[in-house]
Design a protein around this nucleic acid. Structure first.
Length: 591
RNA sequence: GGACCUGUGGUGCAGCUCGGAGUGCACGCCGGCCUGUCAAGCCGGAGGUCGCGGGUUCAAAUCCCGUCAGGUCCGCCA
């Protein structure tokens, strides 16, 4: 039907006849005998010279047979890739007329997301979505290639799976042939891929759709896509190297910048404990340089009651001394909203000769003064210690929290993200690994431990003896991949020995009968010779969103749902007919 | 389940604090003019349940209550 894409026509085509197809992007009329139509396809735009009777409304789909010529002297358009040439002698066929559009395709102003989603097919025509979805395809393609180069085999697993009540809420699918019974859509192919390991496919991967019936967020949809992988006879480092290759290849393919390889290939690894200590988060944003500082040592014997806590930590806010009193009050409120009892601030200001404020105390060397509601409760050594530990300079602000280790860390970690500037640098993509997560998160109402991951995660061998004595200190052989403060994926080495599995089930308060009922088929599979194995899953939507510079994964999904789980384009979810319900043996209660 | 933000011709915004006639800007749409524009330009026109419901008031886009939709977040997401 066509011989050329619009955006690819160049001076090389001058005097040639071409046939193009596309949408009317814009038109400029100059009277009866001269008008310009810009025709657009996904490659770009080309100007066609026509007469007025061949002018059609924007977004009309046309086919144009025409000749290419150099534009007349002085009329070329340098801001257009095809701006040197134009089509003339146009034989124009209207393939499909367009009604006036609800919003403009050319993105000169933002359109409300609600309207974009209602007319998603129009939104998809826009450059932003064209770019994002093509970027997504590049990323997935690069990942597939990376996995295949490492000897991984792509295997599909069922969407209609069995309920394994744990973790995320599942979507249930009623069975027509087995009345009253349900399949569920998989939260992830976790168990299926472990069965593939038992089945001897020792390197598996899949671009897998996962489904979780949980509340939606900017980085969470009901359905999302993972690069899911699992391998046998490997250790943690092997998994990290497979995943590293996949994400670096994907990033390089997406950006086209080979130069990124150098810093990307050295992904730092933090233990969970270390990440919490230094960044106050298990998904630290490394684009922010500032780290949380432990002040426990120098304040060990402080007489200031509020600082007599399990943990005292400080956060330096560069140039923060200019914060107003109300801004500081907001910070304290924010800390309280995050669960803190309080927050102490300390401004470092230039010392002045007529310094007489009751709240200000001189520190040594005379160049710095402090302004803080609590400085009078601290010794000058303690104050100096805080200044030195945080490397605070004149015009900086120090935030200090005394609380439990976990709370002090996580609250300052959140304040770090909200108040400390991230560095503008060439290192746009800051990956890191977090490993050695705690095996258990805490206790539930019944006093049972709560698994931090799924119950098949292998504990560290050297922590096995803690399982009975101090289970909360047991570290798991699990690892997360983090990019710019987003959790990109996680994985673990799995338990393949029944004695360890039994211990973990016991710790979690899962009885033998219950384990048998929930995962019996998996445990049975493990009894017939299961290889040591482990794996990982990378959130592709999140990765692509970050690579595309988007704030939500909806921008990299063709047809996403709203926060309340509806599809504004189709109107789903909808009621189904009584006939359908009868076939499924389902009756619906009124609201 | 909870907190906060948004909702004004087809689109994007202003108007809301301090109530006074649906007032304004840009784009689009319709008609006219225009032979080198390129987000063309010029002239004219049409287009509104100010999300919806209630309340306060002589008077509500504006203040109050409720509700719906969209978003951000908490809870939730092994």
């Amino acid at each position: 039907m066509r011989t050329k894409y619009c955006g690819t026509i160049s001076a090389d085509d001058i005097d040639k006849e071409v046939v193009i197809c596309g949408w009317v992007n814009s038109r400029r009329e100059h009277g009866e005998h001269l008008a310009f139509l810009d025709i657009r396809d996904h490659t770009g735009v080309i100007q066609c010279v026509v007469d007025a009777k061949n002018v059609f409304r924007s977004e009309t789909v046309v086919k144009i047979k025409a000749r290419v010529r150099r534009r007349p002297e002085g009329t070329s358009n340098e801001s257009l890739a095809t701006g040197e040439v134009e089509l003339f002698d146009c034989e124009l066929t209207v393939l499909s007329e367009a009604a006036p559009l609800p919003f403009a395709i050319d993105g000169h102003h933002e359109t409300d997301e609600q309207i974009r989603l209602r007319y998603r097919y129009l939104d998809l025509r826009r450059e932003r979505m064209q770019y994002n979805l093509r970027l997504r395809a590049k990323v997935i393609s690069a990942m597939r290639r990376a996995m295949e180069e490492e000897g991984f085999l792509e295997v599909e697993t069922p969407l209609l799976w069995t309920p394994t009540p744990e973790g995320a809420r599942e979507f249930a699918i009623p069975s027509r042939l087995q009345p009253g019974c349900f399949y569920v859509l998989p939260q992830s192919p976790q168990i299926a891929k472990q069965l593939l390991m038992v089945g001897g496919f020792d390197r598996y991967f899949q671009v897998a759709r996962c489904l979780r019936d949980e509340d939606l967020r900017a980085d969470r949809q009901f359905e999302f896509t993972q690069l899911d992988l699992e391998a046998s006879f490997i250790d943690e480092e092997d998994i990290r190297s497979f995943v590293t290759k996949a994400v670096i290849d994907a990033t390089t393919a997406a950006t086209g910048e080979e130069s990124l390889q150098d810093y990307l290939s050295e992904i730092p690894i933090f233990t969970w404990r270390e990440a919490m200590e230094r960044f106050g988060s298990d998904k630290p944003d490394l684009r922010i340089d500032t780290e949380i500082v432990d002040l426990g040592k120098g304040l060990e014997f402080t007489s200031f009651k509020a600082f007599q806590a399990e943990s005292v930590k400080g956060l330096l806010v560069k140039k923060g001394a200019c914060y107003s009193r109300s801004k500081l009050d907001q910070l304290i409120e924010r800390a309280k909203a995050l669960g803190a009892k309080g927050l102490v601030w300390m401004k470092v200001i230039p010392s002045s000769d007529d310094d007489e404020a009751a709240t200000a105390g001189d520190i040594s060397k005379g160049s710095k003064s402090l302004e803080s509601p609590i400085v009078k409760f601290l010794s000058s050594e303690e104050v100096q210690y805080i200044i030195d530990s945080t490397s605070a300079e004149v015009n900086d602000l120090v935030l200090i929290m005394a609380d439990s280790w976990k709370l002090a860390s996580s609250v300052l970690g959140q304040l770090r993200i909200e108040n400390c500037p991230s560095k503008e640098s060439s290192k746009r993509f800051r990956f890191c690994w977090i490993k050695d997560f705690p095996m258990f998160e805490g206790l539930d109402e019944d006093g049972n431990l709560i698994a931090a991951h799924h119950p098949f995660t292998m504990p560290h061998e050297e922590d096995m003896d803690l399982m009975d004595r101090d289970p909360l200190r047991v570290r798991a052989k699990s690892y997360d991949l983090v990019l710019n403060g987003w959790e990109l994926g996680s994985g673990s080495i799995r338990i393949h020995r029944s004695d360890i599995q039994a211990k973990v089930f016991t710790a979690l308060g899962i009885s033998e009968e219950e384990a048998e009922q929930r995962f019996g088929f998996l445990l049975k599979a493990f009894s017939y010779g299961a290889p040591p194995h482990g794996g990982f899953a990378i959130g592709i939507d999140r990765l692509v969103a970050i690579l595309a510079g988007e704030d939500t994964i909806r921008e990299v999904i063709a047809f996403p749902k709203t926060q309340s789980g509806t599809d504004l384009l189709t109107g789903a979810p909808k009621q189904i007919s009584l006939k359908q319900l009868r076939e499924l043996n389902i009756s619906v209660k009124g609201k």
